[in-house]
Amino acid sequence: MADAILEVFRGNQEAGGAKQYTVPIAPGMVVLDALHYIQGHLEPDLAVRWNCKAGKCGSCSAEVNGRPRLTCKTRMDALPTDKPITVYPMKSFPVIKDLVTDVSWNYRVNKKIPPFTPKPNTEWKMYQEDVDRVQEFRKCIECFLCQDVCHVVRDHHMKEEFGGPRFFVRVASLEMHPLDNVSRTKLLKNELGIGYCNITKCCTEVCPEEIKITDNAIIPLKERVVDEFYDPILKLVRKIRGTAKAE
């Protein structure tokens, strides 16, 4: 059977570089299989995260030929073999070792978001038309590929000011929950810096769950921020009617 050459980043914070490995190709093989082959037969200390190997847990994120991907869902036969296949760690996060990066920033951002808070005396009735929209967001497997590809994080390093697509999706799932009673628009505008997003849609392009992050989560949230902060007419209406959601 044919061989493929993989060029894998090996190294850590101090030093590192690309190293080439020859891997025999089996039918239906994915990049993660090739990495496992390297671990099992060539270099057992190659560091790579993985769990389910079926695109459901979001552990095996890396950059294959320069594109952020789940390695368990990237078929070898879909990649050109004329040149080595490059496998690099996610660029937006500090490397720990080889393909393993420090993604703790994501968990810190998550903590800033107020949890689901139901209305008092809620009758737990919900209808499919209300949950459809939110269920799309709940598909997120936290692979953090969207965080990796987002240029606000990747090129502008604004990890303090910005929450990133993953957490806009999470906020959207809470804000649009039919029984949630808390407003997170101020958080979006200030702590999560949704204004830094210039909707260039790379997050949507890389999402393995095919969540329409930009169109269905970020833009609707931007519109909600406009409702709250940038629309003088709506502000006036709210003033007259005396309605505002709790924060």
Partner: peptide, 8 residues
């Protein structure tokens, strides 16, 4: 010295 920067 982030190692990645030496590569990309």
């Amino acid at each position: 010295a982030a190692s990645r920067s030496s590569v990309v």
